[in-house]
Design a binder for these strands. Structure first.
Length: 830
RNA sequence: GCGAAAGUGGCGGAACUGGUAGACGCGCUAGACUUAGGAUCUAGUCCCGAAAGGGGUGGGGGUUCGAGUCCCCCCUUUCGCACCA
């Protein structure tokens, strides 16, 4: 009776041993530091399959780097503030803190069962006072640097959660948590972080992120949305007021035939002539009532309303009618645009609808456009016409010369415009980090002195039903305080911070998590940062990953960090969905629980299955029966291993004598080395472990072919032992418990993770090449047959007709000929 | 609409710089061992064909001795942006 593979026993044994020996502790004085980071988790119940996948991939890399001799920092923590805790509190009458800590317990237990190589001594929890006091410290740092400001403006409001939202959290006009409920626009005074100040540097920094996914870099680039052009001033015909517009095409200035204001533009009311006010007001009201989705629907027919007044064209002096239209965005540029219908499609549509003139001022070469009949706005290259002194100037040159001219005449200036908006960080909710600011009637807004941090979140709050104002306002012992400057009665800012503020710096805390004086020491930061490898989902491309870069740059400027970008390499793993391709969710009832999988198969089987199912960046459609193949593989590997090690022929110092091997054993030997190579390639490259696992399966199939170990010849037998030695080590990052067990059964004292990473023998990688003379009509034409991966016998069987060879070779005298048996001939000359 | 990526068996997916398409796994078929098996083992499994042979990587064209891979056109899917002036 042979011992069968019992993953539960093996895993319990090694997890206990790793804990006892503190195997995952971070090295104290690292010589070759490697910071491996996976995005931390929001604790909502237990971990899900997405976490399982993310943390598995990260653990594979961390363990590999350790075997490569790096000193690895591999920490974990919890993104513990956030709305779901409050919603749970409302539904289940449990305090958000209690709910959160309970979920952390549950999730941590599952993660620990996974045997992940985290240094749990560095665990952080963002809702704990030892963390959030430094989140407040960060706020004060930004405030001191003029990067945190309070302003009243029109902001996004989620009617379900009853709180404001950052721009990054509005998806298709709705709050990201409630895709069916459109966001509303409200005029409110809120805290913002001045990320726009860093727009240019965030853009430039992207060029250096060579190991970030291209798609993410591209998304950030469009999100920041840089446009270069000019700002042009127009005077109102009546009164003293003036009006600026932003344009990327100052060369088309002579083609302006109307001017349009966004309905929210502050000038609308004053610029409207009295007799038209009712109509304009009606239009503005209607525009405000429209949802964000309606407003921004580009396919909608454009409409607007005439104010009755005019602006003066700054170059021609002509009056230009001033309109109000809701296709103009209040939040971009100046909230006003000049209408150049001949050269802007939107303006053309508007002009046609209201019979406004269309003036062609750019003529394409070899064509004559007519404003009367133009159907499509012309936006291409050409020469300026009807443009006063600039007639005949090509577009590109015209843009520069007109801008220069505007500057000289003091009616305009060069202007760079970004699509990026400042980051709104206030939330009118309880479960978040309090904003460390105090409102005093006489001193205004006053920061809480640093030595008074943390501003504690009061635990006494019991009512979390959203009302549109922070519950902290109703907690007198929190809300009411004294002004730090004058000592008079004052009140604290009752809002809490966006949880994305927490995640903008959590990775910095890991380098020095127990520091009570500072968020982290500069020394520890210098040692470990930047993050060498960061893994998480791509849904954070224009949110977290942008904020996280922003914070890095701010802390760099403040002298806290030497680095300017937070992470060298970024990888996005694919989603895990159900077999039908649906996202797993409680409401759909299709959630697969990792913990349940571990109950049945232990950890290594589902872990290896996760790695085997698809390339790491691709989506996985999880199917229970897919586990079967991996389960069989591990059980067979174990069975063969146990039978081999029980065999007395295992001796010390038995080297594989390659020349003496039978072809079957040689093939197995070759495949073992290829599996090692394939795993190394995956780890160094694309993280596509599916092919690495497949290579090990091929190796095992080859090892099983000659029969059980006692049927192996003495010459072939060492191949088995060598294959197990290689497997134990190269498989260890993928299936850590099993790898460790095999390694120890091979007679090693130290952990497999302290063993060196195996190097595949080149001989096993080499392609077959055999020298065979090629003769045509009895005459030697060339010498070498080469065929990738083809055996000698096969090659000798290669059937090539004389005609075929003659046809290909012609009169050439090739250096060598590449033949794929029976099929293909390629001559290589020179 | 713009931009990007991708289309390969019943399914997940292999195929490095163009070189025997379908590795590996699931599933399926047959057999062995079994009182039994949703266990295990063995063999088979792209399509047509008894075989020889022929066809085959979304469709159509092209380059090449040779194309899943390179080029052009079209179709489909997914993702990102979506009135940003």
């Amino acid at each position: 009776m042979t011992e069968s593979y019992d993953p539960h026993a093996v895993e319990a044994k090694w997890q206990e041993e790793w804990r006892r020996s503190n195997a995952d502790a971070t090295p104290d004085s690292p010589e070759d530091p490697f910071y491996m980071l996976e995005m931390f988790a929001y604790p909502s119940g237990d971990i899900h399959m997405g976490h399982f996948r993310n943390y598995t991939i990260g653990d594979v890399v961390a363990r590999y780097q350790r075997m490569m001799g790096r000193d690895v920092l591999h920490p974990f923590g919890w993104d513990a503030f956030g709305l779901p805790a409050e919603n749970a509190a409302i539904q289940h009458d449990v305090h958000p803190a209690e709910w959160t800590y309970r979920n952390i317990e549950t999730s941590r237990r599952t993660l620990r069962r996974m045997g992940l190589s985290y240094d749990w001594d560095r665990e952080i929890v963002t809702c704990r006072e030892d963390f959030y006091r430094f989140t407040q410290w960060m706020f004060l740092l930004l405030y001191r640097r003029g990067l945190a400001y309070r302003e009243s403006s029109e902001v996004n409001w989620c009617p379900v959660d009853q709180t404001v939202l950052a721009n990054e959290h509005v998806v298709d006009g709705a709050c990201w948590r409630h895709p069916d409920t459109p966001v509303e626009r409200r005029e409110l005074e809120q805290w913002f972080f001045r990320i726009t100040e860093y727009a240019q540097r965030l853009l430039e920094g992207l060029d250096d992120l060579e190991e970030w996914p291209e798609s993410t870099v591209k998304q950030q680039r469009t999100w920041i949305g840089k446009s270069e052009g000019a700002e042009v001033d127009f005077e109102l015909q009546e009164g003293e007021e003036s009006l600026s517009v932003f344009t990327t095409r100052p060369d088309t200035l002579w083609g302006v035939t109307f001017m349009t204001l966004a309905p929210e533009h502050p000038l609308v009311e004053r610029a409207t002539v009295p007799e038209r006010r009712p109509e304009v007001r009606g239009y503005v009201e209607a525009a405000r009532a429209k949802s964000e989705i309606e407003r921004t629907d580009a396919s909608r027919e454009k409409d607007g309303v005439f104010t009755g007044s005019h602006v003066i064209h700054p170059l021609t002096g002509d009056p230009v009618p001033l309109w109000v239209a809701d296709y103009v965005l209040a939040t971009y540029g100046t909230g006003a645009v000049m209408g150049v219908p001949a050269h802007d499609q939107r303006d053309l549509e508007f002009a046609r609808r209201y019979d406004l003139p269309v003036r062609v001022v750019i003529q394409p070469r070899g064509e004559e456009l007519d404003g009367e009949t133009l159907e499509q706005a012309y936006t291409g290259d050409g020469l300026m016409v009807d443009s006063g002194p600039f007639d005949g100037t090509p577009v590109e040159e015209g843009i520069h010369r007109v801008t220069e001219f505007l500057r000289e005449e003091e009616i305009g200036r060069e202007k760079t415009q970004y699509r990026l908006r400042d980051w709104l960080i206030s939330r009118q909710r309880y479960w978040g980090c309090p904003i460390p600011m105090i409102h005093c009637d006489s001193c205004g807004i006053v920061p809480v002195p640093e030595e008074e941090l943390p501003v504690l979140l009061p635990e006494s709050v019991r009512d979390f039903v959203p009302t549109g104002r922070s519950p902290l306002e109703d907690v007198p012992e929190f809300f009411e305080t004294a002004c730090p400057e004058c000592g008079a009665d004052a009140h604290r800012d009752p809002d809490t911070m966006d949880t994305f503020v927490d995640s903008s710096w959590y990775h910095l805390r890991y380098v020095d998590p127990h520091n009570e004086e500072e968020p982290f020491s500069r020394q520890a930061a210098r040692t470990w940062l930047p993050v060498d490898f960061y893994i998480g989902g791509d849904e954070h491309a224009t949110g977290h990953l942008l904020y996280f870069r922003f914070f890095t740059k701010v802390l760099h400027d403040a002298g806290w960090l030497e680095i300017d970008e937070p992470a060298v390499r970024l990888f996005h793993h694919g989603m895990v969905k159900d077999a039908e391709g649906e996202i797993m969710s409680k409401s759909k009832g299709n959630v697969v629980s990792p913990a349940r999988l571990f109950d049945r198969d232990g950890v290594d089987v589902p872990r290896l299955a996760m790695l085997f199912f698809a390339p790491s960046a691709d989506e996985i459609l999880w199917e229970e029966k897919g586990l079967e193949g991996v389960r069989r593989f591990l059980h067979r590997l174990w069975a063969l291993f146990v039978a081999t090690m029980a065999d007395r022929r295992v001796e010390e110092d038995r080297e594989v004598e390659r020349k003496a091997l039978s072809s079957g054993a040689r093939e197995a030997w070759r495949l073992a080395h290829r599996a090692v190579q394939r795993t190394t390639d995956s780890l160094e490259g694309d993280l596509n472990f599916n092919t690495a696992v497949a290579a090990f399966m091929e190796m095992l199939n080859a090892l099983r072919k000659p029969g059980p170990p006692d049927e192996w010849s003495d010459e072939d037998f060492p191949v088995l032992v060598e294959a197990f030695d290689l497997s134990a080590r190269a498989l260890a990052p993928l299936a850590p418990h099993l790898g460790e067990e095999l390694w120890h059964r091979l007679g090693h004292e130290e952990s497999v993770f302290d063993a060196p990473w195996p190097v595949a023998e080149e001989e096993a990688m080499a392609q077959e090449s055999v020298e065979i003379p090629i003769q045509v009509d009895g005459k030697l034409r060339s010498r070498v047959y080469l065929a990738p991966d083809a055996g000698r016998e096969e090659m000798e069987r290669a059937a090539l007709s004389d005609e075929r060879i003659r046809e290909v070779l012609g009169d050439e005298e090739p250096e060598r000929v590449i033949v794929v048996p029976g099929r293909l001939v390629n001559l290589v000359t020179g």
